[in-house]
Structure formats: C-alpha cells, structure tokens
Design a protein around this nucleic acid. Sequence first.
DNA 1: AAGACGAAAGTGGTTGA
DNA 2: TCAACAACTTTCGTCTT
Length: 310
Amino acid sequence: MTTMRRKTIKECPECASKNIYRNMERGETICRDCGLVLEDRMVDFSQEWRDFDDDSGGSRRRTGAPTSETQFDQGLGTEVGSTSDFYKLGSDRERDRFFRLRKWNIRISTAIERNLKVALAELKRVSSFLRLPRSVEEEAARIYRRAVQKGLVRGRSMESVIAGALYAACRRHEIPRTLDEMGEASGIEKKEIGRTYRFVTRELEISIKPSNPADYIPRFASALKLTAETQSKAVEILEMARDIELTSGRGPTGIAAAALYVASLIHGEKRTQREVADVAGVTEVTIRNRYKELIKKLKLTKQVDKSKKK
DNA sequence: AAGACGAAAGTGGTTGA
DNA sequence: TCAACAACTTTCGTCTT
C-alpha cells in the first residue's frame, strides 16, 4: 500500500527564505519573511492511520488503531460473538441465549450507529474540503455525537447539524470559517447553518467567544496576495479599533475586510473594494461603512493620503 | 470605463415589553 | 407574541480617477 505524505516544506518558494513557521493547529505554514501562506489550501492525501490488515502488520501490531471521535464507535466496537462461536456452545439453552443476545445487540447498535457512520463520513468530507485540521474535526464529531444523544437532530437534516457542529468547532479553535464557506462546503444554506449552530450550541451549553476579526486576516490576506507588512498593518489597525470599541456589535468579517482594505491602501498595494469584499464574503457597502469609521476614528487619513501621492 | 461613494429600501435576527 | 431596532445587503444613480 502506498501512502502519500504531505511534503515538508523547508524553504519558501516565493522568497527562498528558510524562516518558515508552521502552525499545526491552524493547518497553516507561513513564511515569516514574505507572509506567504504555503500549506493553507493544500490537500492532505495522507492516510489517517495505518491499515491494520495489510501484510506489513504482523510484528509491528501491538494495539489497535488509536481511538477517535471520528470513528463511529471510537474504533472500539463490540459484537456479541460470531456465528463461528456458535459451535463451541454446548446446550440448547446456551444456544438460545447466544442468539437472543446477538440479535438484540445488532438491533440496538445499527439504528444509532449506522446514522453516526453516515454522519461522520459527511463530516470528514466537509472538513477535508475546508482543509480543517484534525483537532477541529474531532471537536466537531464530539459535538455531533452529543447532539445525537440529546435528540437534537430530530426535525433537522443531519447535514445541517454536521455543518453547525463544524462551524462551532472552528470558532472554538479560533480558526473561524465564514458561514458562506461552510455553506459552500456542505451544500447547506448559510441561514440554516446559522440556525442549527445557534440551536445546538445553546442546547449543549457550548460557550463560544465572539470571534476575533484578526483570526480572519491571514486567510483573507493570502487570498488577496498581500504582503506580510500589509497583513501586520491590518492586525495593528484591528487592535487600535478594538481599543476604542469600534469592533463590538459589528460583523467580524466586515471589520477584518475593512482593515485589510485600509492597510492595502497605506502600503501602496491597493486592492479594490470589490476584491476584498469577495474574499471576505461581505459587500462593498459594508467595507465602505467600516472603512469610513476606521479612518475617521483612528485618524488614518494622513497615512492614506501620504501613500497616495507616491 | 472602472471604481468609489452614498441614499433608500429590504432581509433576518435580537431584544424587551 | 409582537414591534422596534441594529447590522448588513441589494440596488441604483452620481461622482472621481
């Protein structure tokens, strides 16, 4: 069996710098010199764990596969006997008992577990589409499992609960995806995802901090091919904005987009409002509104004008 | 001609009586 | 349960580069 491994990058293809920073949690690899996000959107073809049935197993096999939230039974399924055990049994009574138990066990398991199996396959599909790290995937699976146990899926589609769980997991790990992205990946309308997300987090009492606009910056900046300086300028702007309470109550993506827009103006690598709006999933109007507030309240007018004259 | 700007009306969600 | 409300969107006409 061949296993495709993710190539380890040692040097930045853009500027040949070796100053590479790898953030496993976020699934991102970033060049510290030019700010290029190297692996953010790379496909992970690697196997999640080794196939224990292959012929290289044998002597190396000590325990089973690691337990995992994304295996429908945590990889520790039980089955009462197998039909070959049947012949080891003595009396008729023992045989009766054996079959009864076996039948029941299968009946109980299948309903719930078959659902979980399908659900977790869907979860994996969506999460790999979005290139989410395993930690987030596991968290989402944990949330989904609890939702099923509490009967929260009833009256809702399985897919929307999956999407909601993933959205929540991303937020908890501070690598938020927008509802638009989640919608695109899952094929569920973003309204619906938002609804189930709120419902599930409320019912399961999962508390989630309001997301920090700065969490969106690396991804947006990378999509717009902005330099590291512009990116850190945007973060700087966000910090200033937060200090004077410009950020509360506003949609975090809009603020992040506006900060990036302003930063791109200041650093003379201008992007149109349209371009920034598209990657951030907001409208130009929202960017304009946030942008006006920013330059007014933060007195950035001079900086923007200065770079215009160049 | 493209981009930026701003007014006006509409949408979906939250809040408080 | 309903109405007021804030944030954001859509649409469109006008100004600027």
